[in-house]
Design a protein around this nucleic acid. Structure first.
Lengths: 221, 221
DNA sequence: CCTCCGATTACGGAAATCTGTAAGGAGTTC
DNA sequence: GAACTCCTTACAGATTTCCGTAATCGGAGG
């Protein structure tokens, strides 16, 4: 089993809970805690430099800002920064988020090893997830396993960019200008139209406003 | 101090944590727990019928659905249902939500007595909140106290309805038709235009899509 | 009674959206 | 090379949005 683990979680009650689970149910005792992203990063780097690296990171996604100045505010940035130092580190994200699309994104973009959803069965799922990751598996939460199947809509970066620009209130003409300025193709208004129309079909949206509302609800933006 | 308290929280680790805080830091020992909304409601009703009512409800807002059929899925419904039985019950909401607008809505629409934000200082805030509510105060979380001031935008029910319809992709013409069918006034396209334009100003939105995106981000929809 | 003020309503016009059709290019397959 | 598909681009027209101006109505206050 993993011997050295870092738990990054700002919510102090949960933090205590996780440590207890690791002790009692998994049998890990060398556990370091961090309540702030920056703190987690520093602890991680120090351990890596002194050649006593962590084997597993368990982290939340959202860290509330407080009086202290934090350079990293979200767990996503923390993961990216830590992966730069130690690419093969095992990472389990442990968060409130339960929207399948958003969780899927974590696996795709950040290559996390496991995800546990804070909730009723968090203890059982956490134990199961750690054991699975230790065996080298990718452990999806039941929320994603159930929901997946065929309703996954594959959005490429261009689609995401379009959605973001539209959500920021830019007109298609403005988006076209931006694209041309940045020399990104495609960049004709007609193609943008076509792309957005395809998104209408995908998400069964009636118009741009509806589309952005749907995508916001799904947590993709 | 309160003697009989109900804690409704589906997240088992947090549930345990709250009970511990109530025991150690506040000195409340007659604590009942519920992991499901329906369960909380039943316990509450039973206590009220047997004339040993709860004096305080501490509840989360979001309850994950699971295999069990739940008639109440959100803490908001739970609060509304419990208030019907015992209007003067003290209620503290204890949730992830940190957006000032959404928290304000809880105080305005549900008349809750206190709010505690899950986070770094949850323990201290929870203790402070319980003590304040016991004295008869309305206890706002620091997030709201800081943020408030003048940036509160007052939306009436008509505005909210407009925003919801727009987010569902209805055109203004369609909304007008609905209003006329339901004999709700105002119901002219021109007034709808004016109202939405005012919302543009309030939220500094460039167009309808931008407006809906902003409002979704604020958590008002 | 009169005036002021805010909300509602009507109307018009420039701009943007949405939805077609059609044409050109790049890559694949036969 | 011909046939095919997929993506990009152009264009056009109906609808909708957005933002003016202006008329009307009702309540508040002098």
């Amino acid at each position: 089993m993993f011997t050295k683990v870092l738990v990054a979680e700002d919510y102090e009650i949960a933090n205590q809970g996780i440590v207890k689970v690791l002790n009692d149910a998994v049998g890990i005792y060398n556990i370091h805690e961090a309540q702030y992203c920056d703190d987690a990063y520093l602890k991680f780097r120090k351990a890596h430099q002194s050649e006593e690296p962590f084997e597993l990171l368990i982290t939340d996604l959202s860290f509330k800002e407080n009086h202290k100045v934090q350079t990293r505010t979200s767990g996503i940035e923390l993961i990216q920064d830590i992966r730069k130092i130690q690419p093969d580190i095992n990472i389990i994200v442990y968060s409130q988020e339960s929207r399948p699309d958003k969780i899927n994104m974590l696996f795709q973009k950040l290559n996390i090893n496991g995800y546990v959803c804070k909730g009723q069965h968090a203890i059982k799922e956490l134990v199961h997830c750690i054991q699975g990751v230790y065996k080298g598996n990718i452990v999806l939460p039941p929320e994603v396993k159930d929901a997946n199947q065929d309703n996954i809509i594959n959005l490429d970066d261009f689609d995401i960019m379009l959605l973001e620009e539209l959500a920021l209130g830019f007109t298609k003409k403005e988006i076209v200008q931006k694209l041309k300025k940045q020399k990104i193709s495609p960049n004709s208004e007609s193609t943008i139209d076509k792309r957005v129309s395809k998104l209408f079909d995908d998400f069964k949206a009636k118009n741009t406003t509806h589309l952005v509302a749907i995508v916001k609800d799904l947590g993709l933006l």
